[in-house]
Design a protein around this nucleic acid. Structure first.
Lengths: 198, 198
DNA sequence: ATTTTAAGTTAATATTTGCTAACTGTAAAG
DNA sequence: CTTTACAGTTAGCAAATATTAACTTAAAAT
């Protein structure tokens, strides 16, 4: 049973427990029994809240993805200079990542290959819209002459999500606790100015 | 049945079929039946070559990971100037990635969370040794004054693997065919010099 | 006060899974 | 020519899985 979530509705608990299982233990452990155990109910009780396990997954994906999308919109709506907007997108993104404990990239990775068209479509359209928004900002930066002309805005947009993903990967592989990204500003600086001395 | 692998031994076919399933369809589809179907034998016949399905996974991980480690050693043994060595590591890594069709990062990601200690240990020690080797090169670069002093070599070493991983993610999410990394030198340039104009 | 509904239970279903056992054919070894 | 080992088969098992059905109970609605 998740202690911190005592007063939430069962449906909410199922979603959170399911996400935690996927993130920490992998898809193979995402079973009705395991979810039920974590929530403190039987496997059968889950079907009082969802018609199938797939429905839980769709809910989890939508949940986390909408937070992720919102973070880009929030950064844009702040009306900062282009360079600051780009940095703010990264900051917002890092914030969502920490709040969701690295679920977004893991979910994307896990379900993009699951063969389930519904999962893939949700994830695909999220990534496309994200890429669209971010590459527009990058293009503006190129017009303003602050972003390198020789980079592909769409490829670079994917680098933003990718870098985040890379950090989750390191976090898991190093079996760490605590924040996924120890030093957000260092990561942002590496992305913006590279690892070589200027 | 994998057409291009007709003349390989059954054991070899099983390993390749297994890897392909994990990469393209995810762990959930990694079953004796599915592997057998792909190879053209029954599920039971697999056990004439491996004692368990886990044994296949260990074999797959070792296979791909050793190629990955070798790529770093190869770059180091070329005795290039530091900056070129770093770039060469990335180039070698990209080469392995394309050859193995993105299997390495997917395997790392998939099995680092599988809860199986054996899988985790193999992956963990690979990542540690990789990080060790690469961060030493980065430290040399810092001493020579060509790499930024304010970056953490170990964190940055993980960025090298992570970036590769990120590209696999983009590849999957965009449902692309052909090479995973369209423009290796652009990626290397972004990592080394950042996305901002100098 | 009674009925209805929500949310849980246990029990049971069909399917799938990993794996074993017993059998078969073939090809090399003796 | 016989034997043995290999690589496959089919059949089957026990456990796990997703899901459903039938039942219980407590609270909300009437």
């Amino acid at each position: 049973m998740i202690q911190t979530l005592e007063d939430l509705s069962t449906k909410e608990k199922i979603i959170l427990a399911g996400a935690e299982i996927i993130v920490k233990e992998g898809i193979r452990k995402f079973t009705a029994k395991n979810i039920g155990n974590k929530v403190g109910i039987t496997d059968a009780a889950i079907y009082k809240h969802f018609t199938s396990l797939d429905e839980i997954i769709v809910e989890i994906i939508n949940r986390y993805i909408s937070r992720c999308s919102q973070s880009v919109d929030r950064a844009i709506s702040m009306n900062l200079p282009t360079e600051e907007t780009l940095k703010q997108v990264m900051r917002e993104h890092i914030k969502v990542l920490e709040e969701t404990k690295g679920a977004v990239p893991i979910l994307c990775f896990e379900f993009s290959r699951s063969g389930n068209k519904k999962f893939f479509d949700i994830l695909h359209s999220f990534v496309e819209s994200y890429k669209e928004k971010l590459s527009k900002i990058l293009e503006t930066g190129q017009k303003e002459g602050i972003v390198r002309q020789d980079i592909d805005p769409k490829e670079t947009a994917m680098l933003f999500v990718g870098l985040i993903q890379a950090k989750v990967f390191a976090y898991i592989m190093e079996n760490r606790e605590g924040p996924i990204i120890k030093n957000p500003e260092e990561l942002i600086s590496e992305l913006f100015y590279g690892i070589m001395k200027r």
